[in-house]
Design a protein around this nucleic acid. Structure first.
Length: 564
DNA sequence: ATAGGGTTAG
């Protein structure tokens, strides 16, 4: 009996595969070792660790144990918290308490992980209370778990509070806080926290630096990014210097930092030096080429990727559809549309949106609408892309119909971009009252603070309709300096409706500004004065250019070019 | 005997 017991324990020790485990389990039954808690614990441990997880088998063994120890409960909870049914971990934890076992310092990290994955901060709060009640709030693992739980549920104030109460901040606690800030779109705060961590002389590790790189990428802070890269080198784990144990995630994060900040040459160089490139690395560089207007190179890299044997995923398609749109590669776009359908991701919200956006930009609104109709869960961006696509192509009525349908869903709330499309549609249709109504409900009902673009749309709308005084009033209300396009829209109205007095006022206002104006504005002004026979004023308008030493090339608008 | 933080996208 004792001999069997020891044999089984040593067999379990060296057990590598699930097949072996089942044999050993059989052995415990035939040798009646089965009731002994230690081999059972080992069995459960094996079935609940990440590499060899088999939860149904673990559950089977578990159900045959009369009095599971806390260790066994913990293993089961660990297994579920890392599996595809994390809420089962929460149920098990409750069951464990019902059967008279209090969770311990090992239980909490697992349960909190389950709360994070389930995004269940209410449950997380209960666990928090339990941690306080059982006196484990001083445990660094429990606190870090809490910190992560709050951060991943978006409760950064609570995460901060937990962090502040940790007695001694180690690198993991700092990194958790940094990661939490990154995940809740507070990348610049993450950098601040990182600098504070350095101030406390806590040495960052690779995971810290991944988060720092992501923060620099998101904030386009290449200065800190370069500094951090250099620091990684000094710490001796720059994957591009010592690729012995190449950390592909850190390498990709560094690559992406340079890529997002527009240092495409450096990014490309690093990419070429990577001994191992995963899909994320390819996607990062493809996205950068696409976003920095180098569509041809994005497409080239995409084909290289296919040659290298990698299959594009959603992220790849997003960049590629954009690149197709800007380079006018309709045939390729259509072929990839077929690929997307084959991979059955055409119903995916982001993919569908990128696809419809591509068709809309190329003027194929029929296809754009078809794609739009097939998108399963249309979010704001899907609706907005469709609205802007229609508005851009002079199909304002349909744009407004789509907007109405969007409001009727009652679940999708328009954002500031949606309203740009809506106001643009009104402007092209000459629907002054409708445009004003929409502008008001945007601010009053939706609480959106209008940006320069929104005011620009209103100025454009009113100018086209000849309601120049109202347009001027909008100009005065603008939160920032009007863009060239807005001055242009108003001057355009002055020209059409022959309002020289307003043109005069605008000219003197514009002369006061530091901003540069292109020859378009000058031409407009000159025309207005010339038509009114005010030849002496034509020279005044020329001052607008002379003073600011503006090159005679046209500074065209963002508002106009995007939507006309 | 069990534990915490990581890369790409509109």
């Amino acid at each position: 009996m004792k001999k069997h017991y020891n044999t089984i324990l040593s067999l379990l020790e060296s057990c590598k595969t699930f097949g072996q485990l089942k044999q050993i389990h059989g052995l415990t039954i035939t040798t009646t070792v089965v009731k002994n808690i230690i081999p059972l614990s080992r069995l459960i441990d094996f079935c609940t660790t990440a590499e060899s997880r088999n939860l149904s088998y673990a559950k089977l063994v578990f159900s045959q144990i009369d009095q599971p120890s806390v260790y066994i409960w913990n293993c089961m909870i660990r297994g579920y918290s890392g599996g595809d049914k994390p809420y089962e971990a929460l149920i098990l934890c409750r069951e464990m308490q019902r059967r008279g076992h209090m969770p311990d310092n090992f239980t909490f990290p697992f349960v909190l992980k389950a709360c994070s994955i389930c995004c269940d901060p209410d449950c997380g709060r209960c666990v928090h209370n339990c941690i306080v009640k059982t006196g484990f709030e001083v445990d660094v693992y429990a606190s870090t778990g809490l910190l992560n739980m709050y951060a991943s549920c978006g409760y950064m104030e609570l995460a901060h509070k937990v962090f502040d109460e940790i007695p001694k901040w180690n690198v993991v606690a700092w990194t958790s806080l940094i990661a939490g800030l990154v995940n809740s779109n507070q990348a610049s705060e993450a950098i601040t926290v990182f600098k504070e961590m350095m101030h406390w002389n806590v040495e960052p590790n690779e995971i810290t630096m991944v988060n720092v790189m992501v923060s620099c990428a998101r904030t386009r802070d290449i200065e800190t990014g370069k500094w951090a890269h250099n620091h990684i080198r000094q710490l001796g784990f720059d994957p591009f210097v010592s690729p012995v144990r190449f950390n592909v995630i850190l390498a990709t994060a560094i690559l992406d930092m340079y890529a997002k900040c527009g240092s495409l040459k450096t990014a490309r160089d690093l990419f070429d030096r990577m001994p191992l490139r995963n899909l994320v690395a390819w996607n990062s560089l493809i996205a950068a080429y696409s976003q920095y207007g180098r569509a041809k190179e994005a497409l080239g890299l995409f084909f290289d990727m296919k040659t290298a044997g990698l299959e594009p995923d959603k992220a790849t398609f997003l960049s590629i559809f954009d690149a197709c749109a800007t380079s006018g590669a309709l045939a390729l776009g259509q072929a990839l549309h077929a690929c997307v359908i084959k991979a059955s991701i055409h119903e995916d919200t982001a993919t569908g949106t990128a696809l419809l956006d591509m068709y809309a930009k190329m003027g194929d609104l029929t296809s754009a609408q078809q794609v739009f109709n097939e998108v399963k869960n249309k979010d704001v961006m899907a609706w907005t892309s469709m609205i802007i696509g229609l508005a851009m192509h002079g199909r304002g009525e349909e744009a407004l119909v789509i907007f109405k349908r969007m409001q009727e869903t009652g679940t999708v709330i328009p954002d500031q971009i949606t309203y740009i499309g809506v106001l643009c549609a009104c402007s092209h249709l000459g629907l002054v009252e409708e445009g004003q109504r929409q502008f008001n409900s945007m601010t009053d009902v939706c609480g959106i603070v209008p940006t320069v673009e929104h005011y620009g749309c209103m100025v454009d709308l009113l100018s086209r309709a000849g309601r120049l005084e109202e347009a001027e009033r909008f100009l005065e209300k603008m939160p920032a300096e009007p863009s060239v396009a807005i001055w242009g829209a108003l001057l355009n109205g002055c020209e059409i409706y022959e309002n020289v007095a307003l043109a005069d006022r605008l000219r003197s206002q514009m002369t006061e500004l530091k901003q540069a104006f292109g020859s378009g504005v000058y031409v407009l002004l000159s025309n207005i004065y010339a038509r009114a026979g005010r030849w002496e004023a034509v020279n005044l308008s020329r001052d607008l250019m002379k003073h600011k030493r503006v090159p005679k090339t046209l500074g065209c608008s963002s508002v106009e070019t995007n939507f006309d």
